[in-house]
């Protein structure tokens, strides 16, 4: 058990290190962008004196590494700082956005993960059947279509022509759960299109890979029903690859949500980040990207833990 715990701790430490590196890259990246928030706020007609005054006021005239260290000092004390653009507390600014993004991502995940596993298993089970082939073609199409295209097509049919769902997501603090579901329907479906297809294909591939094992042949030769062979003999050995597939898909969901949020003007984290980048609002960009990176790392960590915990060799040492 200690060995497993040690492995998990190692992964966790590695995750923190990655997070640190990400923060440097983002900070340096935004620094390199031409212009800064002072210019962005005051517009092109502003006089150099005004810009310099605003820079001084915002503390932007200090050297970059000082600002970076300052930022970390704040973060370690639980203070993400204030937005340079509107002077609001970032933590407050982000909480609402983050909860919206998570709501959208979780809705998409809750529907697509079980469906992907089910469809993937069925496709593996009835390999090369009409079902398998058609699912393959459809999913290939879904993966290949760019999200914004899917999004606009969905808007065209379901909100403009049929009027079932709103084309823009109007969500605020008081929106009820049911209403929220209604609002996120189209963005969620857009997201699902991609990850469902991807996950399904990967689940199918990893199950088929397992089906070539000697112990699967043995299960058939023991006269086990097909369904039992899959569920009892293949699936327990497939959790590790499947967990990895799901983790990557979910990470994609949270991060790839940006495009979808922009199309549907959905008040999520992705949209906030896009706005902040164009404003050069470094603290907000930093906070958003740390959340995205953290999610990514956390999901991959979970996948690692699942693979460790489903490996009988690690779970039941000699």
């Amino acid at each position: 058990m200690n060995r497993i715990l040690l492995m998990i701790l190692q992964r966790f430490g590695l995750g923190l290190l990655t997070l640190f590196v990400v923060s440097i890259i983002i900070f340096v990246g935004v620094e390199f962008l031409p212009g800064d928030i002072a210019e962005a706020l005051l517009g092109q007609g502003a006089s150099p004196e005004n810009v310099a005054a605003l820079r001084h006021e915002l503390g932007l005239d200090r050297p970059a590494h000082i600002r970076y260290i300052d930022w970390w000092a704040g973060v370690l004390q639980g203070d993400l700082g204030t937005s340079l653009a509107n002077r609001r507390d970032i933590a407050e600014l982000i909480t609402f956005r983050l909860s919206n993004t998570l709501f959208l991502a979780l809705t998409a995940a809750a529907i697509s993960v079980p469906l992907a596993i089910l469809f993937g298993i069925l496709a593996a089970l009835y390999r090369n059947s009409a079902y398998d082939r058609s699912v393959n073609v459809i999913t290939l199409g879904a993966v290949s279509a760019p999200e914004f295209l899917t999004a606009y097509v969905l808007i065209l049919y379901f909100s403009v022509k049929l009027g079932w769902f709103p084309s823009l997501s109007n969500i605020d603090q008081d929106t009820s759960f049911i209403d929220k579901l209604h609002q996120v329907a189209l963005p969620a479906i857009t997201l699902m299109g991609v990850i469902l297809a991807y996950m399904m294909r990967m689940v199918r591939a990893s199950i088929i890979n397992l089906l070539a094992s000697a112990y699967i042949e043995m299960a058939h030769l023991k006269g086990m029903p097909k369904f039992r062979v899959i569920v009892k003999h293949a699936l327990p050995n497939a959790w590790a690859p499947i967990a990895n597939i799901i983790a990557i898909s979910l990470a994609y969901l949270v991060v790839g949500v940006v495009v979808v949020e922009v199309v549907f003007i959905y008040p999520g984290l992705g949209q906030l980040m896009v706005d902040s980048v164009s404003n050069r609002d470094i603290p907000v960009v930093q906070a958003c990207s740390m959340i995205f990176a953290g999610t990514y790392i956390l999901l991959n960590l979970t996948a690692d833990i699942v693979s460790i915990c489903t490996n009988p060799r690690l779970l039941h040492p000699k």
Binding site: Y215, M218, L221, P236
Partner: peptide, 24 residues
């Protein structure tokens, strides 16, 4: 055939290490 296999005709494979399911 399935009802025959394992019940009336059984099979012992070359590599028992590969033919036992590692998860059970």
């Amino acid at each position: 055939l399935r009802k025959l296999r394992g019940v009336r005709i059984a099979y012992v494979a070359q590599s028992a290490a590969a033919s036992f399911n590692p998860a059970h």
